[in-house]
Amino acid sequence: MSVRFWRSPGIWSLLLLFALVIAWEWAVAAFAWSQLVLPAPSVVAVSLWKGLASGYFWPHIVQTSIEVVAGLALGGLFGFACGLMLGESAFGRRVFMPYVVASQVVPKLALAPLLTVWLGFGTLPMVVITALVCFFPLLESTMTGIAQAHPSRLELFRMLGATRWQTLWRLKVPTGLPAILAGLRMAVVLALVGAVVGEFIGSSQGLGALIIAAQGSMDTPLMFAVLILITLLGWLFYLAVLWLQKKLLHPYIITQGSKES
C-alpha cells in the first residue's frame, strides 16, 4: 500500500474505530461484564441486524425522521422569518428580544408533557417540540447574518434606488447566507435531540420510544443498537445540510486558485 494511503486521515479515523471496538469486545470478555450493563459490540451488532432485517426498526426510523424534517422545516422557517423581522426593526428587537430569550431559557423538553396534554400522543407534539428547538438557532443566525451587510454596499443599493424589500432580499439575505446556514447546521443536530428526547416522554413510536421500550424489557443490546441508529441518522441529516450548504454557497467559496487563466 502506498504512503499516500497511510497519510489519509480517513484511514486513521477508521482504524481508530476498529481499535475501540476491539478493545471494547476484549474488555467485556476479560472482565466478564454482564450483558445488562455493557453488551459486547458483537451482541449489539446482532441485535441491530435482527431489528433491521425483521423490519422492526423501520417504522420507528421513519417516525423520527418525519419529526425531524417537519420540525426543522417548521421551526427553521419560522425562526428565519422572525430573524428577518427582528433584524430589520431595531424597535421590534427591543420589544420582542426579552421574550424570545425567555422562551429559550425555558427547557423546551420540559414542555413535552404539557404538549401531550394539549395535542395528544403522536406525531404533532413531537414536531412542535422539535420546531421549538430549531427556532432559536435560525432566528439568531438570521438576525446577525443580515446585519453584516457592509455600509458601502447599503449605500450602493440606496444609490441604485433599491426598495427596502430589495435591499433585504438581494443584499442582506445573500450576505447573511453563510451565517444562516451555520445556524441551520446547529439546528439539524438539535432537532434530532429534540425529537428523540420528546419521544422519551410522550410517544410510543420513534427511536426515542424504542429506547424506553428497551429499558422496560431490560434489553441493553437493543438500546445500544438504537443509539447507533440515532447516531447514523443524525450524521445523515448533518451531511444533507452540508451538501445543501455546498450547493448554495458555491459562488462564495470559489477562490483565486480556481481562476482559469
Partner: peptide, 14 residues
C-alpha cells in the same frame, strides 16, 4: 448619478 465606491462593492454571489 453613478457611484463607484472606495472598495469595489461587487456582490460575491453574482
Amino acid at each position: 448619478t453613478g457611484f463607484v465606491f472606495q472598495a469595489p462593492t461587487l456582490l460575491e454571489w453574482l
